[in-house]
């Protein structure tokens, strides 16, 4: 049954839908083409995205626009320090029926949606942040011993300010590992800034149209998993992840020195899965090494935990990954 659903969409249709979504988002968002594509990749891979950047760069607007283009239920949670888990998941409240009998009824929280914008997620306490753990991994929520499944597709887009800023709580490792991508929102270029001025200060505001529905998105997610990956491509992904582990034989030099824990197995999964979507978006039915190299930073940067020396010297996880990429590329060349 599910196979039939998967076969309903062809790679050409996949590309066409992606093109339409991309076009609608770009009507609203100026520049940030790479960011938009990566958010789409994560979305079509069934993963969640953590957007990091200083305020005012359009993170929230990007998520809202994406939700508008897709005919999906959208919810937004503004994370604050006093936000409680029940404010996200929902809670049992006492109700009274017409006969006067009281009973508990689960009031669903904002997590019961399809596209969830967790805005400024690192402003909430770790306890509250952890409320999303089950939802993100299992696509389910448990309250008072009862599990509630979330509607598919379920997609969390979290934004956070850089953790060095005041009044923020770093996300716990278990939480951050559940994000498929961590994307850095860069400051727009001068030309993009002029375009932003033109678009946002005029009378008419651009509005994104709906171009895809939930069923279509589910088919696209299913089709992406059909993309083939050759053995040497998988091996490359594994070697790349191993290169971030300081205790591994093939660890990159920077990883040996500055990394406490390397990328988790979820990192390999994320790399291959995202690579499949990227290949399909490019009209290919196979994952290439180029896909993995292009996606290594967003898929792995939040999974590399620096040690004290790395933190003290201000080493960026991206630098470690770039080093691992260069080292792993040498291994690849040597093998062929």
């Amino acid at each position: 049954m599910e196979q039939q659903a998967k076969t309903a969409m062809t790679p050409e249709e996949f590309g066409a839908v992606v093109g339409r979504i991309r076009g609608e988002v770009r009507r609203v968002i100026v520049g940030q083409e790479g960011l938009i594509d990566q958010v789409l990749i994560a979305f079509l891979a069934g993963g969640h995205v953590l957007l990091e950047g200083v305020p005012g760069l359009g993170k929230t607007l990007l998520v809202k626009t994406l939700a508008q283009t897709l005919d999906l239920v959208f919810a937004r949670i503004q994370f604050t320090p006093d936000l409680m888990p029940a404010d996200i998941i929902g809670t049992n409240v006492v109700m009274q029926d017409p006969d006067g009998r009281r009973y508990f009824e689960f009031q669903r929280g904002p997590v019961f949606t399809q596209v969830l914008l967790a805005d400024e997620i690192n402003r909430a306490t770790p306890k509250t942040q952890s409320a999303l753990l089950e939802a993100m991994q299992e696509h389910a929520v448990t309250a008072a011993g009862t599990s509630y499944h979330l509607d598919e597709p379920f997609f969390v887009l979290a934004t956070q300010n850089p953790i060095e800023m005041e009044g923020t709580y770093p996300l716990p490792e278990a939480q951050i590992d559940r994000f498929l991508f961590k994307l850095k929102v860069e400051f727009p270029s001068a030309r993009d800034l002029v375009e932003i001025i033109d678009r946002t200060t005029a009378v008419e505001q651009p509005v994104a149209a709906v171009v895809a529905g939930g069923d279509q998105i589910r088919e696209m997610i299913g089709l992406a998993r059909e993309v083939e990956a050759a053995s040497h491509v998988k091996t490359y992904a594994v070697r790349l992840v191993q290169a971030t582990h300081p205790t591994e034989r093939q660890a990159a030099p920077l990883a040996k020195r500055y990394v406490r824990y390397g990328a988790s197995p979820r990192g390999v999964q994320a790399l291959i899965l995202a690579g499949k979507v990227r290949a399909l978006m490019a009209g290919r039915a196979n994952v290439s090494l180029a896909d993995l190299k292009a996606l290594a930073l967003p898929a792995l940067r939040h999974r590399v935990i620096l040690n004290f020396e790395g933190e003290a010297e201000g080493i960026d996880a991206d630098a470690v990954l770039q080093n691992a990429l260069s080292e792993t590329a040498d291994l690849e060349a040597a093998q062929t």
Partner: peptide
């Protein structure tokens, strides 16, 4: 060729 040939041979 972005690993098309090698993947095709394996698949």
């Amino acid at each position: 060729l972005l690993d098309r040939l090698s993947t095709a041979l394996e698949v």
